[in-house]
């Protein structure tokens, strides 16, 4: 993703003249108060609902009729969004199935991606037999099974408890490092964004706009030690301040 920019405004003005370049291999967090349009922005990038004005420019030329580079985008929703009548395997198979990949051809990719999220032993389980965190893992596996270049995550861990969430954060970071994928991660948690990303875009509400663009250059390995480090604390301070200002602006605008 060399150059993605978009510029739009829609009826309720969820987003106004928002422009954003995303670079290849970036882990970008979209951070902002609720209602600032960060999920809307993500959905527009994913092609769910067109922008009322403005465009999204993709770098590659292989763009499908829906304006999406085919197979290049994985999406993880706020909820796991699994099909309850399908097993874990069947749920992860879905994106490939919709492309007409046969079960036999899809199996290696599915087993591979399930292994990487630690669910290799649960292929035959049904979603209702899994815990909240495991369902989310299945959802991530499904998003990754097509080997996308861009992974969009819409507050994926908001409903999980702190411990599960930290574990999944570690896993997402590991997957990001291993695959070199570009991630756009929507969150309302300062700590989550500071831990995960190497760039944080803070958004303000009413209308939704980019308020601050904070590149985080850190050489520190992001692990348990990083969570308690001085650098992490300084980062969260900076980000918190930016978010606070963004919220104030939004309130004034109202």
């Amino acid at each position: 993703m060399r150059h993605v920019s978009k510029l739009f405004s829609n009826g309720t003005l969820a987003l106004k003249d928002m422009s954003l370049d995303v670079h290849r291999g970036e882990f970008l967090s979209l951070l902002g108060p609720s209602g600032c349009g960060k999920s809307t922005a993500l959905r527009i990038i994913a092609g769910l609902g067109a922008p009322s004005s403005g465009t999204i420019d993709w770098p590659s030329s292989q763009i499908s009729k829906k304006g999406l580079p085919e197979g290049d985008v994985g999406f993880v929703f706020q909820e796991p969004t699994l099909m309850p009548w399908q097993t874990v395997w069947g749920n992860v198979y879905l994106p490939l199935r919709l492309r007409g990949v046969s079960k036999r051809d899809a199996d290696p990719a599915i087993m591979d991606v399930l292994g990487s999220v630690g669910l290799a032993d649960f292929t035959k389980s049904y979603p209702r037999e899994l815990s909240g965190g495991m369902k989310m893992r299945v959802s991530i596996a499904r998003a990754l099974v097509t080997k996308p270049k861009l992974l969009l995550m819409d507050e994926p861990f908001a409903a999980l408890d702190e411990i599960t969430r930290q574990k999944l954060n570690d896993d997402v970071l590991r997957l990001w490092r291993e695959t070199g994928i570009t991630v756009i991660f929507v969150t309302h948690s300062v700590f989550e964004s500071a831990f995960l990303s190497n760039r944080i875009v803070v958004m303000r509400a009413r209308p939704g706009q980019v308020y601050a663009d904070l590149p985080l250059i850190t050489s520190a390995v992001r692990d348990e030690n990083y969570r308690t480090s001085e650098e992490y604390r300084a980062t969260t301070d900076t980000v918190s301040r930016a978010l606070q200002e963004a919220i104030m602006r939004g309130a004034q605008a109202k």
């Binding site: 909820e79 796991p80 969004t81 699994l82 309850p84 630690g118 649960f122 389980s125 979603p127 209702r128 037999e129 899994l130 815990s131 909240g132 965190g133 495991m134 369902k135 409903a159 999980l160 408890d161 411990i163 599960t164 574990k167």
Partner: peptide, 21 residues
Amino acid sequence: MTDAASLPNSNAEAGTDSQVI
């Protein structure tokens, strides 16, 4: 339907991520 079904489970299983019921 799915969400309502999953809620009790996820609460009960809070933090014990690698268990199956």
